[in-house]
Amino acid sequence: MLDAVLNALILNAGYNAALVGLGAALLGLAAGCTGAFVTLRRRALTSDAMAHATLPGIAVAFLLMAAAGGDGRNLAGLMIGAGLSAVLGLAWLDSLSRTRLPEDAAIGATLASFYGAGIVLMTVIQNLALGRPAGLDSVLLGSTAGMLRGDAITLAIGAALTLGLLLLLRRPLIMTAFDPGHARLMGVNTDLTDRALLLLTLACVLLGLHVVGLILIVALLIIPALAARLWSDRMETVALLAGAIGAVAGYLGAALSVALPDLPTGPAIVLITFTAFALSALIAPRKGILAQTVARARLRRAAISGRR
């Protein structure tokens, strides 16, 4: 088994494993960088609701494509359905937030109702035995089994576009996250900036559907950013570090999942991002637990010797 993991790590496990590893790394890079902005704008839960809201759209897209006699699992078709469904979920969330409902409650309600509807539709699909639904449930937790060359190219293009847009919009994104009022007075269209951030998040969710799955994609958005935040106090550095952590986690998680075929890719990647976070929390300079313990002990010693 160790051989299999090592083989997968060095891309020796074959063409498909290499493809999957690179695809997952690109996804992690895009999601990590985007997630740094998402967490600072406090949209972490919104992104989770958005991801869960894709499920009904995926199911409906599958049904439509299968009923039309095509392959229900066509990735482009599923992505379109997922995207439309997520936008619908966001619109629903937006209208809920305009009532007096607290935002976290509105997010919880949206997430649960859309996901519930999606699960019902998925059950219907399984029972219909229409259009070869086998493998469709990989959109929940991710899988590396079915990744094709075309999927990897889609991931590469999507990640490149996402990163390009982030680079372009970094100043308005940072200003809007820090002080939206000031940003508006400086001529930044903060509504448009917020919408762009949601669009970038949606891109990560859609790109991650088959690799990480919609349930856990939120982790790839948020946890690398939390880990990166412990290492740097500069927004640009935090975003780049989060991207790097996401990329490594994506690559390692995919390799692990290739070597252990029963392990879904999503959980594998998430556990690795969490490991990165836990290590950062322990050893990061200044903000890490070790550094703080040492600093406090030093202070205490200085206070005691000062008293003498």
């Binding site: 600072l40 820090f178 002080d179 009022g181």
Partner: peptide, 30 residues
């Protein structure tokens, strides 16, 4: 416009000079 201090999250990953430079956005733009 200088908002109330409590209006922003001071844990934001930015240095003092980064915040001041946000005041230059009209001249730097995108």
């Amino acid at each position: 416009y200088v908002p109330q201090r409590a209006a922003v999250d001071w844990e934001f990953p930015a240095r003092v000079i980064d915040v001041v430079q946000m005041g230059l956005y009209r001249r730097t733009g995108l």
